[in-house]
Design a protein around this nucleic acid. Structure first.
Lengths: 342, 342
DNA sequence: GATTAGCACTCTCACAGCAAGAGTGCTAAT
DNA sequence: ATTAGCACTCTTGCTGTGAGAGTGCTAATC
């Protein structure tokens, strides 16, 4: 833990400067650009201490200093809040512009991930709400023709889902109405996962009454195949992060792409973050994964009708502009929560 | 046009070899690996002619030869068909495996693009069917509560679409039924785009009869906002193409990503290809675009119930393995057409 | 004790020069 | 028409060098 105020200022200066320039910071630069009123020798002295404490490191002997992951962590936890990034009007305007026209749900997820990519100059990621944990508000069956039924489900968060079910035996509209009523009576307000789990069991209480419909219940259960772990993720444009100097060696980029395009990986990372807190930051080595050790992920939850339902994230190098990214995520998350709650 | 048989063999050998090794081909290699029974000097002689005719080029004076775009074009049009790639069982099995479980429509598009990426080691692209040009089979309105209506549309190709409409005035179930009936009567079998274009005009024929519902018709028209040019595209994993040696300089990759992630660009390219023929190949300079001059795109249409509805593509360097890519696209397109037609 | 000037030291980076190797194009012979 | 032979050109990798950047340490100063 750093107690000395000047050393905090120096660490702050190094992080701040490195975030913008991607160049190691020398003692001279700190004297020149950040008015600390001491000589470069003094700065060097403090920097050496900071290095020994593990907050800074040097790429090589005669280079300036760059922050370690521990340095970033200290910055993020203790220094950053004082100078949180003030979003300028044009960014806010661009965000609002994007949500002006009402879009289909998947489209909203897509444009959100793209927007984050573009505004942060890194990779935007959106974890979509998982319907499985959402509660059933309405279910409708539409008989399309003799052997097809369209099932429509609406959840309390306003998400909807539909699927066409192929049936083998004819079924009458009346029978469908009965099924609808049974489901309404038994499952309204329960989560889709529970509906799926308990459907057959519950239905067999009606079994003697509706024996002829046994096969249809099985088909319905097949259609309502919701699981807690089936998350849906949207990655924004990659063209920005590809330009970050830390990925100028193609090898690094290969590692990164291999990792992020195996979607489970990112889902796991974001899921771990989003339920507990409003926002979370994971820095480089904190992932405990080789391929992510030069990257940070900032995650911000969004809500639907006040309930946390998913998260938006930025993935960038550990050198990412944390305050700016957080401000952007914040603004977008609020906007998104509002739109999805409508 | 190449008339000489040996020169055709040489061009074929150069393309084939370059596709697999990504290294310029020397006259010695051709003598050694492709039994032409002439000396390297003779090969050199022919290669010089091929270069003068524009089919081959040298990266620098003392290097072997690589094909020009014209060379690839000749290969693709005249030489390739003789040795079309024979898909091995494991590839076929992997494709079938992916389509085994029934998935939601968007999910099918997604896994298809990923599958193409993986199997071709390049970028898979899927152009989804455009609903606007598809014809209306069924429309249903479901009154969710006093101010929300769920509109469900099903097209003759079996695609479906739904949207929640917020209404300002109450409307009865009976009125909704009437609206449904009017739409059914007037628009069944017409394309969604036409439905959208002609709805208000047609409806005003009913105007005096249904004056009270004027506002609701406007809302419905807003919801059925289908346009011919609103294509939907899915890009597969990028991690494979990133590893191609032609993109080892990060600059090239930057150009490529800037281009492909501006979705209009790829949509335009694929759309131009897919409607006219079953498959199409565009090579490097043929795009007439700076940023695509080192890339080729192979496009294969797929059908729904016999009607061409979209396309799947591979984007790779001009050095892409054309026969293999074509075979893979072929197999996947057939599988996809079948699944989407069900 | 904290701060500072001064300086030797180390490492990077860009550039030049050089030798080996690859593959060509041309010439003259077959 | 084909081929052997060879000079020529260009790449690639290695080495060396000098300038520049920035450090850590020492000794002097506040």
């Amino acid at each position: 833990m750093i107690t000395n105020d000047r050393m905090k200022s120096i660490l702050n200066a190094v992080v701040y400067s490195y975030i913008t320039t991607a160049e190691p910071i020398s003692s001279e630069v700190i004297v020149k650009d950040y008015g600390l009123n001491v000589s470069s020798a003094t700065i060097r002295h403090d920097m050496l201490s900071l290095e020994k404490m593990g907050y800074l490191k040097k790429p090589h002997t005669s280079a300036g200093r760059i922050p370690t992951d521990k340095g970033y962590r200290f910055y993020v936890d203790n220094l950053m809040s004082k100078n949180i990034y003030d979003l300028n009007k044009s960014i806010k305007k661009e965000i609002n512009e994007n949500y002006k026209i009402k879009k289909e749900f998947n489209e909203i997820m897509r444009i959100t991930s793209k927007l984050i990519s573009k505004l942060t100059n890194n990779l935007g990621v959106v974890l979509a709400p998982n319907m499985a944990s959402d509660t059933l508000r309405d279910i409708r069956f539409i008989l399309l023709n003799n052997n097809r039924i369209l099932i429509t489900i609406i959840t309390d968060s306003g998400l909807f889902y539909q699927k066409i079910m192929n049936i083998t035996h004819d079924i009458s509209e009346d029978n469908l109405d009965t099924i609808e009523k049974i489901i309404k009576k038994e499952f309204y307000g329960k989560s889709l996962e529970v509906v799926n789990d308990e459907m057959l069991e519950k239905i067999y209480q009606y079994y003697f009454k509706y024996r002829t419909m046994e096969s249809i219940w099985k088909l319905i259960e097949d259609c309502l195949d919701f699981h807690d772990d089936e998350e849906n993720i949207f990655l924004g444009n990659r063209c920005y992060i590809v330009k970050q100097p830390e990925f100028k060696e193609i090898e690094r980029l290969n590692y990164l792409f291999d990792f992020i395009e195996e979607e489970k990986n990112l889902i796991q990372i974001i899921k771990k973050s989003f339920l507990s807190k409003q926002y979370d930051i994971v820095i480089g080595s904190e992932f405990g994964k080789e391929s992510m050790q030069d990257c940070s992920v900032i995650t911000r939850q969004y809500t639907i009708k006040g309930k946390p339902m998913g998260a938006i994230s930025v993935l960038g190098p550990t050198r990412i502009n944390y305050p700016k990214a957080i401000s952007i995520l914040d603004f977008i998350a609020n906007r998104l929560s509002k739109i999805l709650s409508e």
